[in-house]
Design a protein around this nucleic acid. Structure first.
Lengths: 240, 240
DNA sequence: CATTACCGCGTACAACGTACCCAGTGGAGG
DNA sequence: CCTCCACTGGGTACGTTGTACGCGGTAATG
């Protein structure tokens, strides 16, 4: 009853009116959890481990956070705050969106575990709200709000899609201990078998291309991003 | 030692040479797991629950699958097989990619839990391989392989991005028991508070738009998809 | 000063993935 | 044919997880 009215995390007040001073804080807990998740993965960031990180007892965390899932929401929103969108409807929409895309990608690469937490739409944390306001403001003067939403979904989809691949291949490469160009060619006997079978010509082409990439990951990303921005430009009225 | 050589699931043989006939099969287990995940979510599909579904003991599953993570890989690949890409380099690339995008979206909506499993790149299951061959074949004659990869990442990124939002909002709506148009406006007191604060004009616009959507989810998807295909068309040489 | 609402946290429990072990089974080699 | 042993299904058990509950202590309110 008393808890049910807080339909989400952001409505639940952090500091109560009375009682002893809390020894910790949501921010501190969130920070510790992110630190662990960055270093060892999200599944390592258990309640006990997080508590140990800040020198607290495991159950103390529940004074600050209703559940681990909610803590992950807090963590995800904290990450949104890392994307710099200050002064963002700057007038140059292409520069703004490029900066956003770069920031989003860099943030994902800093915190790869974010790929494993499914975004729950209704969780509008303060950082996510600020991001929405600034980012959607970039095209707000040029297109209708629903088209704006679609275009931003396209942009974020591109970034997240490419970064997801970067993350998973990086994870695999770290696991195997080989360099990226060597990995596909030598280490993975399964891939080798597929290539040698001759049944997958296009897959083989991909493998060969990965063997001698003539574009760095960054360049690949930037190149694709230009394509996406071109696409957005085409959807804009001619005034821009 | 004996297990370490099977670097991934697909190399591990399903049927051994000797011994009694197995009572179940990988396909049967995978199917049961998918059935449970569809109905009650991936986290409900525990080893014990899956075993119960097919009338087996919990530990029997480990005769067929090395770990639950590997079983999830099997499930994910089975899902790839649901996307119909038969006869796919048909000559009309726009039709092919539309069919693929529709199929991918429909599959995700049938199995929303797929959003929670991070794709691990090196897991090239048979269905995924077939999908790659057919899909990448569509543009293979027109663009270089690395550009092809980028364009397909763009397309898949768009589909997955929009579908992720559909899934999470559908989940929230089912949880609240309200209609979609009512949900944002009435039920969510947090959203109401944000709107009334007046500090988030663009967020408010989004909420108002969602209150009276003039485009269905399907139409929104199709509209955005046309934008993406236009973008792909722009990246193609003029011969197409 | 008494009350009350909070604090940190130890204990406990259910559910999870899965290591280990067992008796039984059926194809291969004699 | 029999013997062997690689395999089968599955019961038991262990370590780890999220977290419900309740304790004794503390600080703001009346």
């Amino acid at each position: 009853m008393t808890d049910a009215e807080y339909v989400n995390i952001w409505m639940r007040p952090e500091r109560p009116a009375r009682g002893p001073k809390p020894a910790y804080s949501r921010a501190q807990i969130t920070e510790a959890a992110i630190r662990i998740a960055d270093a060892e993965g999200l599944e390592v960031a258990t309640m006990r481990r997080i508590a140990a990180e800040i020198g607290a007892g495991a159950m103390s965390l529940y004074r600050y956070v209703p559940s681990r899932d909610n803590l992950v929401e807090l963590m995800a929103d904290r990450l949104m705050g890392e994307i710099d969108v200050t002064g963002m409807p700057s007038g140059d929409w292409r520069a703004d969106l490029t900066r956003y895309a770069d920031g989003l990608r860099a943030m994902w690469l800093r915190h790869p575990w974010i790929a494993t937490v499914q975004r729950s739409l209704p969780s509008f944390g303060p950082n996510q709200l600020l991001l929405i306001e600034r980012l959607m403001g970039v095209l707000d003067a040029h297109v209708a709000i629903d088209e704006n939403l679609g275009l931003m979904a396209l942009l974020a989809g591109y970034v997240e899609g490419t970064v997801r691949e970067e993350i998973s291949s990086a994870k695999e490469i770290r696991r195997s201990g080989l360099s990226e160009s060597e990995w596909m060619a030598r280490s993975h006997s399964y891939v080798e078998r597929l290539v040698k079978s001759g049944e997958y010509p296009i897959f083989t082409k991909i493998v060969m291309e990965a063997r001698q990439p003539h574009l760095s990951r960054d360049d690949q990303f930037r190149y694709g991003l230009q394509r996406v921005l071109d696409c957005i430009a085409a959807a804009l009225p001619s005034t821009a």
